[in-house]
């Protein structure tokens, strides 16, 4: 089979069953995304990967590639929409990059750089969210959660533990952990879990290694997120050495 579709005018081959995102990633083409990860089932919630197929909006991480389809990706129209989505995520949570130890390895921040977001634009919600420092090896900083559910998927599908879930509805949606007390220390979570290394932002943080790599020399300080390297690959390895 030699199927292909057009992504911003470029021929992208795909195998049947692949989504537009999977095929683009395999071909080394960047479609902005936050909740998608190559190792996990697609979720389709962040909507950063919204593309246009035949003039209609579609979520590229969930829509199947089809032969001959014409996909618009990095157009001014779509990047403007994505910038607005990023701005909504920034004002919804408490994202203070200067005091975040994930800065430089954060996919939200790096995607905002990629899309040239200069301002959060909207009025900030400044939600009141707690921090959970109960676990000996891992800190949970809920202020930065973008509800991508990557940790939910990693803990459920890879670790087999179901440590995380989303609770609430609408803007009250929030991450909860699986214990009677609601504390991470009272779960079977371990710093070696896949879920400990998958957070694209600064919610799930391994303790004592936050500044092993100085600010300014981190994944997305060295190359834009569109170049394809994921901070979580490196972060997982890095913890193994330091731990």
């Amino acid at each position: 089979m030699n199927d292909s579709f057009l992504l911003d005018g470029e021929d992208i081959p795909f195998t049947p069953g692949q989504t537009v995102m999977q095929a683009a990633a395999a071909a080394g083409k960047y479609i902005p995304h936050l909740c998608w990860h190559p190792d996990f089932a697609a979720h389709g919630s962040c909507k950063l990967c919204t593309v246009k197929i035949g003039g209609r909006f579609a979520t590229s991480c969930t829509v199947r590639a089809a032969a001959g389809q014409e996909v618009e990706n990095r157009t001014d129209e779509l990047d403007a929409k994505r910038r607005t989505l990023l701005q909504l995520l920034f004002v919804e949570g408490n994202h203070f990059c200067p005091s975040c130890e994930k800065s430089g390895d954060c996919a939200l921040q790096a995607t905002a750089y990629e899309l040239g977001m200069l301002t959060p634009h909207f009025d900030h919600f400044y939600p009141d969210r707690p921090v959970d420092a109960s676990h000996p090896d891992v800190l949970l900083e809920f202020n930065r959660c973008i509800l991508c559910e990557l940790c939910v998927r990693a803990s459920r599908d890879v670790d087999g533990k179901n440590v995380f879930a989303l609770a609430g509805r609408g803007t009250r949606s929030h991450l909860v952990v699986n214990s009677d007390t609601g504390r991470l220390a009272d779960t079977d979570f371990a710093a070696t879990d896949r879920a400990a290394a998958v957070c694209p932002v600064g919610v799930i943080l391994k303790k004592r290694v936050g500044f092993a790599v100085p600010i300014g020399q981190r994944t997305y300080d060295r190359q834009p997120i569109s170049a394809g390297l994921r901070a979580d690959d490196k972060a997982g390895a890095g913890f193994g050495e330091a731990g």
């Binding site: 920034f90 408490n94 994202h95 203070f96 990059c97 200067p98 005091s99 200069l118 301002t119 959060p120 900030h124 400044y126 939600p127 009141d128 969210r129």
Partner: peptide, 18 residues
């Protein structure tokens, strides 16, 4: 022109907002 993180999103001082 909003110059710098604090002008742009409140920055460190805004972490008292909760």
């Amino acid at each position: 022109v909003a110059l710098g993180a604090c002008a742009v999103n409140g920055g460190l001082p805004a972490q008292r907002n909760h």
